[in-house]
Nucleic acid binder design. Structure first.
Lengths: 142, 142
DNA sequence: AAAGATTGACTAATCAATCTTG
DNA sequence: CAAGATTGATTAGTCAATCTTT
């Protein structure tokens, strides 16, 4: 297996393990948790386009993902006072609680499945590769 | 960003870069290439369940993926003489050609986007992590 | 014109039910 | 009854068209 195959296989399996653990324990899905994390990080100032950019899905998909989170009562869209084209997406109390408890399950699951040394080494290498990739794709887009 | 976030973000971006390059050059998609690679590796002895297991999708999804490859003339299902429940999935000549040319585009794209040292380091660490993960999930399934 | 967002048509997954063969 | 495979209903993406606001 070359690097690309290992990367893809490992990511798929680890994502699935986290997602399965979340669902089994009655939490939001891994995809929903990813969105809640972005919204949490933006602390009241996040828009749909921020969700889209941070998790690598199209704006249309992000809009629908936010629809579902809103339907489930985890977020609300507030009018953006600075720009009437967009809404600000903010966590409800239920959303903040769901984020906290899902994050705990996620982290507990990862602790169980990861090896500290290999994780640190992979993190460093992937950070280098990510920098290079973001440079390279910025060039192509320009 | 912690390890999980970096891993997911990098995998999504690199997958997208490879998939985009393949499509732009008129090749099969990255998902189809992954399936063709499994079928190629099994050298005439691959079944739908092998495609499913190798690329981490359900058997139902693999059945439909193989349907589409068959519709596009890249593979055919032959009766399995050893087990009448399953078919053997084999590459057609067109499928073998598509596999070869898509693989070249994939590899050229990766050469451009990867850094040799970081790639080697990440490969080693991910291989360790993958072993541990497969052990851990085997335990849970048992 | 460009940016943010939404929506509809389409694609490719999931899960569960079902069928056939081992 | 297990294993391999297929299929239908559902879910969550993509892309392209459209609308509003900057």
């Amino acid at each position: 297996m070359d690097f690309f195959d290992i990367l893809v296989r490992y990511e798929v399996k680890l994502w699935d393990a986290v997602d399965t653990a979340l669902i089994r324990e009655g939490q939001v899905s891994a995809a929903q948790l990813q969105a809640l994390a972005v919204i949490h990080r933006h602390a009241g100032a996040g828009r749909v386009v921020d969700v889209s950019g941070s998790i690598g899905i199209t704006v249309g998909a992000a809009s629908k993902l936010v629809d579902r989170l809103e339907r489930d009562g985890l977020i609300i869209r507030l009018p953006n006072p600075a720009d009437r084209r967009s809404s600000l997406v903010v966590l409800t109390d239920a959303g903040a609680a769901a984020y906290d408890s899902a994050t705990r399950v996620r982290n507990r699951t990862l602790e169980r499945l990861l090896d500290p040394e290999a994780t640190a080494s992979a993190s460093a290498a992937l950070a280098t590769l990510l920098d290079r990739l973001e440079e390279a794709t910025a060039e192509v887009d320009a």
